[in-house]
């Protein structure tokens, strides 16, 4: 029950209260670039959610077993090489950024190959977005958040995956809303100098303002779950 409450709070936090795009500003390139039409926006959202989950799984594994200070794998290697060494002294966290970016790049590749082979219709709908995702900061951001909590020893795999999946859901919500608004915006007369990126930014600002209304949910849900 306590784990469920924790997961629910993380999910609400990642998807709504601290929406990746509208509060943390990560994943803006696709948010601006691929939000012209509803169906492509939804495809992009799904692709990001998919990749972010795979990357979070891989990066959690790497952080837990290899990268965090006192992780089992490097310590085992070190102590078998050097029996005199004190246990739990090896700290590879300096390598974490490099490892994450390669984990992300390879999970994008993996997902692309897998989807192309086994789900051709799915590949047709969002395959084109997959290579773009490597430089999507939302994914690296999720990995970094997971690292922060795994190093502090307060998150396990369940929490990490929840953050990643619902972070992706939050991204999808934001980009789909944005695409809906932009489709309507096509019919409006926007001042010439604001056309394109500028008006999209201003609309995103209003959207972010609306999403601020979600803050405070976390504390109240918590009160509801543990009266």
């Amino acid at each position: 029950m306590e784990l469920f409450a924790d997961l629910l709070l993380i999910a609400i936090g990642a998807a709504l209260v601290n929406n990746f795009v509208l509060t943390y500003f990560v994943g803006l390139c696709p948010f601006l670039g691929v939000s012209r039409r509803l169906d492509t926006a939804f495809g992009m959202g799904c692709a990001v959610t998919f990749v972010i989950s795979v990357a979070a799984l891989l990066s959690w594994t790497m952080t837990e077993f290899v990268l965090r200070p006192g992780a089992p794998l490097p310590n085992w290697v070190w102590s078998s090489l050097n029996p005199a060494a004190e246990a739990g002294q090896v700290d590879l966290s300096v390598l974490s950024y490099i490892v994450y970016i390669f984990v992300i790049a390879s999970s994008v590749q993996l997902v692309e190959m897998y989807v192309r082979k086994f789900f051709p219709p799915l590949y047709k709908s969002f395959g084109v977005f997959l290579p773009l995702i490597t430089t999507n900061c939302a994914i690296l951001f999720a990995c970094l958040e997971i690292m922060k909590h795994v190093v502090a020893r307060d998150w396990g795999l369940a929490e990490s995956l929840t953050l990643a999946i619902f972070g992706g859901v939050g991204f999808t919500i934001a980009i789909v809303l944005m695409a809906g608004i932009r489709e309507e915006l096509e019919l409006c007369e926007v001042p010439e100098s604001l056309r394109g990126a500028a008006i999209t930014m201003i609309v995103a600002g209003i959207l972010a303002l609306a999403f601020m209304g979600f803050s405070g949910i976390g504390a109240n849900v918590e009160k509801l779950l543990n009266p």
């Binding site: 604001l194 990126a197 995103a204 601020m212």
Partner: peptide, 17 residues
């Protein structure tokens, strides 16, 4: 706050254009 960032950059982009 976050919305202010979007609004400021949006207006500045418009001004630059």
């Amino acid at each position: 706050l976050p919305p202010g960032a979007f609004l400021a950059l949006g207006s500045l982009l418009g001004l630059a254009t």
